[in-house]
Amino acid sequence: MIRRKKRGGRDAGTPLGLFRLMKVRLKVWRQEGPNKPGRFETYETPELNPNMSFLEMLDAVNEELIRQGKEPIAFAHDCREGICGTCGITINGQPHGPGKGSATCQIYMRKFRDGETITLEPFRAKAFPVIKDLIVDRSALDRIILRGGFISVRAGSAPDANTIPIPKRTADLAMEAAQCIGCGACAAACPNASAMLFVGAKASHLGLLPQGQPERFSRAAAMAEQMEEEGFGACRAYGACEEACPKEIKLEVISRLNRDFTLALLKGEL
């Protein structure tokens, strides 16, 4: 059903249905379990359609491994459309790989050259221990939310939704911050392994909205405190997080967080 051409070179931008098959070599981090030593192993992929997604490429490699009686490569994924935040591989040193504003599952093989060697590692950060191969434990992010990443209202107690008008611009800004998918790429990209972009995104989302005002300062302070307790580093404004973020969350959210954090200090809400 799809016209196949012979194998050949790079084929970015070719419309669907017309493509050359390709192959790549993978250097993959393999680690059996949490406290086990890890190592890189090299695999040749089968022939690939450049329109395959990166994860579909890994599926194909795993099918081969299983058929050969070997252990498939463990990697996390679910929605495969860049919204659940489950996936996360550091590809050639970049969390989520090449391409701005994309999660790992949104990377397509046409981004790579035929014959290229691609390195795959888990997201690395002190607060993200490796569980197996390319899967890390990101529960630290949930524990940050636990400290106040919510608005305390009970179901059934809210007034009519249109009671408080919200300027469109405010709603739009809140939405931009709210898009964070909790993937942790920001921390993996940061030389200091800081999760400030993640924390700032949540603090901004809720802190911009009128509904989030009552808990605004205590929320910012508590989440930032938890971030530190989890072993994430402090923000030194390198900006690597913004680069890596699949949702293109802006550094502004960190400035907003810092402001709220300072105000929290002044107000004695810390």
């Binding site: 059934g156 107690s157 809210a158 939704a161 469109k168 739009d172 989302h205």
Partner: peptide
Amino acid sequence: MKIIDHCVALGVPFAREYGGLL
């Protein structure tokens, strides 16, 4: 109707018109 009320209270940034209403 109650769902929308509750979600707005929880901070769901629903799309709004220029006048600020949903």
